[in-house]
Design a protein around this nucleic acid. Structure first.
Ligand SMILES: [Mn+2]
Ligand SMILES: [Mn+2]
Ligand SMILES: [Zn+2]
Ligand SMILES: [Zn+2]
Lengths: 144, 144
DNA sequence: TGGTTAGATGATAATAACTTTCATTTTCAA
DNA sequence: TTGAAAATGAAAGTTATTATCATCTAACCA
């Protein structure tokens, strides 16, 4: 609850800073997205949004998610199925993913030791790490 | 040297097993690819191949790389720049990548401890890992 | 409060990287 | 040598994303 209000405030503030305008469509798309706890695609989000506002366009959903990503409220992910998926910025920090190659179920995990070892591996090569992508692919408990 | 001959033999053998036919185009594309030690895109490979055989088509390069990937001689990679890149199957086993977000330089590393921890993280969630993708993004030594 | 105008919207067109189709050519076993 | 099966190259089709453009609309102001 307070969560979503907060996120909406962050968005409003970002919009103001950038000299943009507030619209009902954008608010509703953002609100709908903030209420999801999945890794949602644009098509899925559009479908959800169209249930209340059927006249909304794909382009507006696309532009809104772009805005949310820019403002840091959403994270864009690519799990190799050909389409970008968005998730809410996790309040408990960064996490990585494990994806079932049979049913597409996605689980999340975070491991500080792995992050540490990544840094070290990079340092050994003279690189500085800004971000990373770690995805495990395999079978979930239900798919053996 | 012996390397490439070996790879060509593996390819020949794969082609025979599948009931396919041998062609000059395929041989030349494969040979050109086997001689690269980069993570090469289809366009880059086509360009290289066209220097000797200008009449060769994109589709043939595409189909040859598909074949090499199926046969295990090539690995297809996605580094987030929108196009698939191919690399030769490394003889020293699996490795992961670190990509410079300024100059696109790609370095490779492998860390057994990280692999181990990944397995454990997956197991904790009841998943079985079949493969994984680990990419670090940051700055290379030349780009600070 | 009505006018102005920069930004937003939604339909549609354009991209870009594949992927497939198809007419023609080539391979290769009989 | 021949004919069926596979390969090739040009071109068309896909699909997800991004841009364009003719209206709309929000927000500031006289
Ligand atoms: Mn997630
Ligand atoms: Mn590599
Ligand atoms: Zn599953
Ligand atoms: Zn660099």
């Amino acid at each position: 609850m307070t969560e979503i209000v907060n996120k909406m405030d962050v968005l409003k503030s970002y919009i103001e800073t950038k000299g943009l305008k507030s619209t009902a469509q954008r608010d509703y798309i953002a609100d709908t997205f903030f209420k999801t706890n999945t890794h949602i695609s644009l098509d899925e989000l559009l479908k959800k949004v169209k249930r209340k506002t059927p006249n909304i366009g794909y382009a507006t959903v696309y532009r809104t998610m772009k805005l949310l990503t820019e403002s840091g409220l959403a994270i864009a992910r690519q799990f190799g199925d050909g389409q970008t998926r968005y998730e809410n910025l996790p309040e408990d920090g960064h996490h990585d993913h494990i994806i079932c190659i049979k049913c597409s179920r996605i689980a999340e995990f975070s491991n500080q030791k792995i992050e540490q070892l990544q840094m070290e591996a990079a340092k050994k090569l003279g690189f500085t790490v800004v971000n990373h992508k770690l995805e495990l692919y395999g079978y979930c408990p239900d798919c053996v």
